[in-house]
Simulated assay, not measured.
Amino acid sequence: MKTYGLIGYPLSHSFSKKYFTEKFQNEGIINHQYELFPIADIKSLADLLVENPSLCGLNVTIPHKVNVLCYLNEVDEAAEKIGAVNCISIKNFEGETYLKGYNTDAYGFEESLKPMLGPQHTKALVLGDGGAAKAVKYVLEKLDIQYQVVVRTPAPNAILYSEITPQILSSHQLLINTTPLGMAPNIDTFPEIEYNLLGPGHLAYDLVYNPLETAFLAKAAEQGATIKNGLEMLYKQAEKAWSVWNK
């Protein structure tokens, strides 16, 4: 039996468990299982590996994407630059467990964003600067898209929502929401920007995928903007994790 799983805390609902369980069933992949491992303290990772010797790979979610780094033998280039890991491959060499960390969020975001980009999308506003923004900023730098981070409380290299001028909204035609605003059950919340200044040239991308159309996306669409939610990013990062585990 090969076991894969998700570590994080709390783990109330998991896209990953549903996705991989259905994948194993639909593709006839036998002797594979995907489990949830809610661990509040990352120090429990060592015990988890001992107790589950069939583990071949892990997904990592909040709050462990950063604090897991010091428990890994190696991280790939993207994960190192981003400073966060959401996927771990587990190999055993001569009785020793070898853990390598990856960031498949960046891959998922990049692959789902690229087909949407037009020639006008040379500058982006990144709404929020939490953990989810790390992979987004890495991809924007890779694609040579300049970005401005927008936050609610003053922070270095960022502006406040109140400082977004009409000129900034006009020149930054790519808007990316990395905050949980609009996520169920708080579906009436949204980033405070002047949506009436958006137009058909704008692309609004929301990392949130539940609901499929957040208030942020609905308000942007009302002004003629192109919109995209985070569901495809989620699928693509999951498939990337599967390829990592099976290298």
Rank of each mutant, 00 (worst) to 15 (best):
M1G: 12
I7C: 07
Y9F: 15
L11W: 11
K18Y: 14
K18M: 14
Y19T: 05
T21A: 14
T21L: 12
T21R: 12
E22P: 01
F24Y: 15
N26H: 14
I29F: 05
H32V: 04
E35A: 13
A40M: 14
S54H: 14
L55W: 10
H64I: 02
V66G: 00
V68C: 13
C70W: 05
Y71S: 10
E74N: 13
V75W: 01
D76C: 12
A78H: 03
K81V: 01
A84M: 07
A84D: 05
N86S: 09
S89H: 02
N92Q: 15
E94W: 00
T97E: 11
Y98W: 13
Y98D: 00
L99E: 11
N103W: 02
T104Q: 07
D105F: 02
S112Y: 09
S112Q: 09
K114A: 08
K114L: 14
K114N: 12
L117D: 11
T122L: 13
V126Q: 02
A133G: 03
A135F: 10
V136T: 09
K137E: 12
Y138H: 15
V139K: 02
V139Y: 04
E141G: 15
E141I: 00
K142D: 10
L143C: 03
L143E: 03
Q146P: 00
Q148L: 10
V150W: 04
T153K: 15
P154V: 11
A158Q: 06
I164L: 15
T165R: 04
T165N: 05
P166N: 01
I168N: 03
L169T: 01
N177A: 11
P180R: 04
G182H: 07
M183Y: 06
A184T: 15
I187K: 12
T189N: 12
P191R: 00
I193A: 10
Y195T: 09
L197I: 00
L197E: 11
L197S: 05
L198I: 08
L198H: 07
G199E: 04
G201C: 00
H202P: 07
A204F: 07
D206R: 12
Y209G: 10
F216P: 06
F216A: 11
F216E: 07
A221C: 03
E222Y: 10
Q223D: 02
A225W: 01
I227T: 15
K228Q: 15
E232P: 05
E232V: 13
M233H: 10
L234H: 09
L234A: 08
K240G: 05
A241K: 06
W242V: 07
S243V: 09
W245T: 03
